[in-house]
């Protein structure tokens, strides 16, 4: 008895040191845009800074970034190219152009958030993400599952839903998929990032409240509100959020992983 006891307390102390807000309940988020570069990464960073567990993806077939002309985009493969390598390539190609259009700035931000752009369709949902320890927002995402998916464009929402329908929901886990229409430029992405954090905070507040109704006692005394759960309150939160962000039209559904 002695030995494992001491063992446990030491490991407990170590974990305490790692996570100061260990007691606080945090919803897990997943942000999605087309190329996992601008809008989803802005959201990823903002949510991570707000201490939410978060991962991010793109739904496009390839990572597309603006090139010297509209017909010559810079194209990269998902999952195989790091932000850092893209940064270095573009910097070598035409530093003036890519600094002026904000790409280098964006990639510079992205490369400190995580390694590289990931494709939604290639994501094996539920596969542990223990190898992503250095990603921002990885804390809490070890299980590889999110409670809330936030897409940044109707097209991406459609792609996510279609993909989830195709997968056949093997994990049996409900997930709220929320689209926020954000235009694909740096300014709008920044506004969208703020709106995402606002949404995350609002949802998390409700989720914590529901989670705090511990045990059968809460369930017993349940009349109306006591019985409601987090899921039920999501549309309310979203409606209130939409009033606050009328320029970011949203769509929501409850889907399954």
């Amino acid at each position: 008895m002695e030995h494992p006891n001491g063992d446990a307390s030491s490991s407990g102390a170590a974990q305490n040191g790692q996570r100061e807000d260990a007691g606080e309940y945090k919803l897990k988020f997943c942000t999605v845009c087309a190329s996992n570069q601008n809008r989803s990464m802005e959201g990823h960073l903002r949510l991570a800074e707000a201490k939410f567990p978060v991962i991010s993806f793109g739904t496009g077939s390839l990572v597309r970034l603006p090139g010297p002309s509209i017909s010559e985009p810079n194209v990269y493969k998902f999952n195989e190219t790091s932000y850092d390598s893209i940064y270095r390539e573009l910097e070598a190609k035409d530093p003036r152009l890519y600094r002026a259009n904000g790409l280098l700035n964006m990639l510079d931000r992205n490369r400190v958030v995580k390694w590289g752009p990931e494709r939604w369709q290639d994501w094996q949902i539920g596969r542990p993400r223990v190898e992503h320890k250095n990603d921002q927002g990885s804390d809490g995402m070890e299980g590889g599952i999110a409670d809330i998916v936030v897409t940044c464009e109707e097209r991406c929402w459609d792609a996510v839903i279609d993909d989830l329908l195709s997968r056949g929901s093997p994990l049996n886990r409900p997930v709220h998929v929320i689209n926020i229409d954000i235009k694909d430029n740096h300014e709008e992405a920044s506004v969208g990032g703020k709106a995402m954090v606002d949404l995350a905070n609002s949802l998390n507040k409700v989720a914590s409240e529901e989670r705090a109704k511990i045990g059968a006692s809460a369930f017993d005394s349940a009349t109306g509100l006591g019985r409601s759960g987090f899921d039920e309150r999501v549309p309310d939160v979203l409606a209130e959020w939409q009033e606050r962000w009328p320029n970011l039209p949203s769509t929501w559904t409850l889907a399954w992983f």
Binding site: D158, I161, D162, L165, P235, D236, L238, A239, E240, Q242, E243, S250, T251, W252, T253
Partner: peptide, 19 residues
């Protein structure tokens, strides 16, 4: 506002399934 969210959600979910 809430009904808007609900109507939009149900319509889009139905349509996505059909598509």
């Amino acid at each position: 506002p809430k009904n808007k969210v609900l109507v939009r959600s149900m319509e889009k979910t139905t349509r996505m399934l059909l598509i």
